[in-house]
């Protein structure tokens, strides 16, 4: 059973932004922060079962 993953959120222009697994140019434009967040969002999207607690890696 697929557990709902907590979305990856980053700050963009001072506001929280949910990073879609497909990414967005705005996220990419953030550089290292954006790429990491995007990869995480993708990873979460691709996982079928997650035993984790959704804690952020970094």
């Amino acid at each position: 059973m697929k557990k709902k993953q907590e979305p990856v959120v980053i700050m963009m222009n001072g506001k929280p932004f949910e990073v879609p697994p497909g990414g967005s140019l705005g996220v990419l434009a953030l550089g290292n922060v954006g790429v990491r967040a995007w990869k995480k969002a993708k990873e979460k999207f691709e996982k079928k079962d997650v035993p984790g607690d959704g804690k952020e890696k970094k």
Partner: peptide
Amino acid sequence: VHPHDITGNL
């Protein structure tokens, strides 16, 4: 980021 990662919406 690999070119194959770049999806349609990007």
